[in-house]
């Protein structure tokens, strides 16, 4: 499943790019993120609780950030294991473009989900994933706004 969308953030590109690499901002932004641990500048371990319809899943996730093409582009890859509830893996590719209002983020997220989540929630996964992706950027904007307030 591939999700694409765009979001406008009223801050300059460098600030936005730095925030995407900031575990504390990420923790506040990822919906359902309970804990985040940095193993290095680019390797994170996160516990994320997500509800897909009737199935509530707690993902133990490993995420690798790829800031090498910054600040024009930011990528991440990861996988999460929710035990019997299922398994998810995927990545995100975000393009950051400066414009008059700040920074435009174009993102492409691909996610593959297996297990009970995919079975029970197949009709819900796409909708839920879209909602979560949107929520991420709403939270992200809010976290940034708080920090730069």
């Amino acid at each position: 499943m591939i999700l694409t969308d765009e979001v406008q953030i009223p801050l300059d590109r460098n600030t936005v790019f730095q925030a995407l690499n900031d575990p504390e901002i990420l923790k506040q932004s990822i919906p359902g993120c309970e804990e985040i641990k940095s193993h290095s500048d680019t390797e994170l371990e996160a516990t994320v609780v997500v509800k897909f319809g009737p199935v509530k899943a707690s993902f133990n996730s490993n995420v690798e950030l790829d800031p090498s093409a910054g600040p024009e582009q930011f990528k991440l890859n990861g996988s999460g294991d929710a035990g019997v509830a299922g398994f998810a893996k995927g990545g995100a590719d975000v393009k950051l473009t400066e414009n008059a209002e700040g920074t435009l983020l174009n993102y492409e997220v691909n996610i593959d989900i297996s297990g009970k989540l995919a079975q029970v929630g197949s009709r819900l996964i796409e909708g839920t994933s879209k909602r979560l992706a949107k929520k991420f950027f709403v939270n992200f904007e809010e976290a940034l706004a708080n920090r730069h307030a």
Binding site: S114, A118, V120, S122, R123
Partner: peptide, 13 residues
């Protein structure tokens, strides 16, 4: 689906 997930695994589907 292509990952081998059963897409119709409950009476909802």
């Amino acid at each position: 689906d292509e990952l081998g997930n059963v897409k119709t695994g409950s009476l909802m589907d």
